[in-house]
Design a protein around this nucleic acid. Structure first.
Lengths: 218, 218
DNA sequence: TTATAAACAGACCGGTTGTCCTGTTTTGTC
DNA sequence: GACAAAACAGGACAACCGGTCTGTTTATAA
């Protein structure tokens, strides 16, 4: 006797499951190398259901970008930086946290935002602008935090933010290609060794000494 | 009367033409989004000829990486840095030359090495190691130049090189996504603003002139 | 000239891709 | 319960992909 098969509609849950699998596959294999058939199988979803929530592959990718990638940047970068005592300290915390996490899991998948940005920016303008917006928010959060640190301005906040995001993105790119997170720490230290360390009372002399001696320590 | 059709075997020329088209398409559309059919049509090459020189698509991509991408890094980065009076000056020259070139042509395709690195590093280990080698040579050239500048050491050469390559890679990533080369200059200035900036007196004007003429030649 | 291999031409094929389409079931509303 | 809309199932399909195969032409060397 055949089992009575019952179905429970769970549109939000199904949408979430599809998004989970798509995000994971896009990051691991890329957009073009991820087939909808693979995603359907991995998510346990039929073609009809997938098509109901995401009419096209592009729509699915756009949802991944706007919901998952943006959230990833927010959670691993924006929130920690805002919660840190200063922008510079926040940057340090994030770099080291990411490096530690990568070394823990033993492989490097790269930055979610950069991964998709490289493959999709030139392919479609909707992709491009969605990804550009995330980059802009990322930089602005760091620049705003830096402005809050010292309202009368030390280094230029926009330049600093651009450099930080660029250094991180590029370091992750190298780490992914070499499958070695060490370059992340090298970049962080390179970033720190240059700090002008603005007016902070008696800490200044100490820091300067550290910078000079660091060269000999190597 | 049908024209007498003559054929001239030109294996090197045909190989070069295929490589040209493949490199261009891989950069503009990516590896997976480039079909061999498109490449054949664009290069005016038949399937038999293509298969004769490159048995598989992977072999073609590997040749593009090792011959074209590596050459691009050498020509736009390694050679100019080695020719510059110092590593820092070389970095400045390259950043500004690339920014100027991008603004001249009106769009940003991104860094050839990073473009392929993101799409192919996780896909295949041969791709990955070939790309990693180019990254390593790039960094080492900068580090070596820096060591030659002041043998008794200033900042740590490896850290500095890693930071420079990362900042450039990430800046190009953002520039590509935003389709705006401005962030390249922002990162360069961010990089420079941290420099201890050793005595530069009246040499500055002279250096700047050399930089400008190089950009026109390049 | 002749043999021999490299260089090239072009058709062919199995498998995959993204999308569309027609039904069926569940859910919400009156 | 009636009814409409949403949620889901699953097959069909045309286009395309990368690789292979057979055959022909050109260059090379004996």
């Amino acid at each position: 006797m055949a089992m009575r098969k019952k179905r429970t509609n769970d549109p939000e849950g199904m949408r979430r499951r599809v998004l989970d699998v798509a995000d994971d596959s896009f990051q691991a294999r890329g957009y073009h190398a991820s087939s909808l058939g693979d995603l359907m199988a991995a998510a346990g979803v039929t073609g009809g259901a997938l098509h109901h929530h995401f009419p096209t592959k592009k729509a699915l990718a756009l949802a991944v970008i706007e919901e998952r990638v943006a959230a990833a940047v927010r959670e691993t970068w924006i929130d920690p930086v805002l919660a840190a005592p200063s922008a510079r300290e926040g940057v340090r915390v994030v770099f080291e946290a990411v490096a530690a996490e990568l070394e823990r899991q033993g492989y490097v998948r790269g930055c979610p935002l950069n991964n998709l940005a490289h493959e999709l920016s030139l392919a479609d303008d909707e992709f491009r602008s969605a990804l550009a917006r995330i980059f802009a928010n990322w930089r602005q959060a760091i620049a705003d935090k830096m402005r809050a640190d010292q309202p009368d301005g030390g280094a230029d906040p926009e330049r600093f933010a651009a450099l930080v995001v660029a250094a991180y993105s590029g370091a992750m790119s190298m780490a992914k290609t070499a499958q070695d997170a060490g370059v992340l720490r090298a970049c962080l230290r390179g970033l720190e060794s240059f700090e002008p360390s603005p007016s902070q009372g008696r800490l200044t002399a100490k820091r300067r000494r550290r910078v000079l001696s660091r060269a000999k320590i190597g």
